[in-house]
């Protein structure tokens, strides 16, 4: 059952929504859908997580919270917006307290449609998100190598030059 190369850990944030998608994300962890068989762990700590799952839209109150969670997550990271509210605001897009979908605050990599998003669709979304994570990771590795080369040069310099 090796669907993924690594075990992605995810952090879940519930924005403003009806909770339906929130419950479905939780249902993904329970026996019928059991995403833990792929090594997916729902962690509470953003610093441990590779994937950020957001259900529900963003409002004034949750905007700084979401931004903070996103900044706390280590690179490379993937954001998955689950449900119609998270992608576009859905039926609540005309409410006075709505800022819009998750993409109004942070960049989103995968949109999972559905009201409420079905567990199968959430699993599909996570699979898709991990493909994005893999490409991001490759790009990030090249970036890091470049950065390390620049960083190490002055360190080796005194050794090379004779006193």
């Amino acid at each position: 059952m090796s669907m993924f190369k690594r075990s992605p850990w995810m952090v879940h944030y519930d924005g403003a929504s009806c909770n339906g998608c929130d419950i479905e994300v939780l249902a993904c962890l329970t026996p019928r859908y059991d995403v833990e068989r792929f090594g997916v762990i729902n962690t509470g700590n953003p610093k441990h997580a590779d994937v950020l799952l957001i259900t529900g839209y963003i409002n004034e109150q949750s905007q700084p919270v979401v931004r903070q969670i996103y900044q706390q997550m280590p690179d490379p990271k993937v954001v998955i917006a689950i449900g119609i509210c998270a992608t576009s605001g859905g039926i609540f897009s005309e409410c006075y307290n709505t800022k819009g979908g998750v993409d109004s605050t942070i960049p989103v990599d995968v949109y999972v449609p559905g009201c409420a998003a079905r567990p199968e669709s959430i699993i599909d979304g996570v699979v898709k998100g991990l493909a994005v994570l893999e490409t991001k990771r490759a790009a990030w590795r090249i970036e890091r190598k470049k950065r390390n080369r620049v960083f190490r040069l002055p360190f080796f310099k005194p050794k090379a030059s004779p006193p």
């Binding site: 403003a16 409002n59 109150q61 919270v65 039926i91 005309e94 409410c95 006075y96 307290n97």
Partner: peptide
């Protein structure tokens, strides 16, 4: 206030 939607005004 984290998930107040104000749907009554819809």
């Amino acid at each position: 206030g984290f998930i107040h939607r104000g749907l009554e005004r819809l």
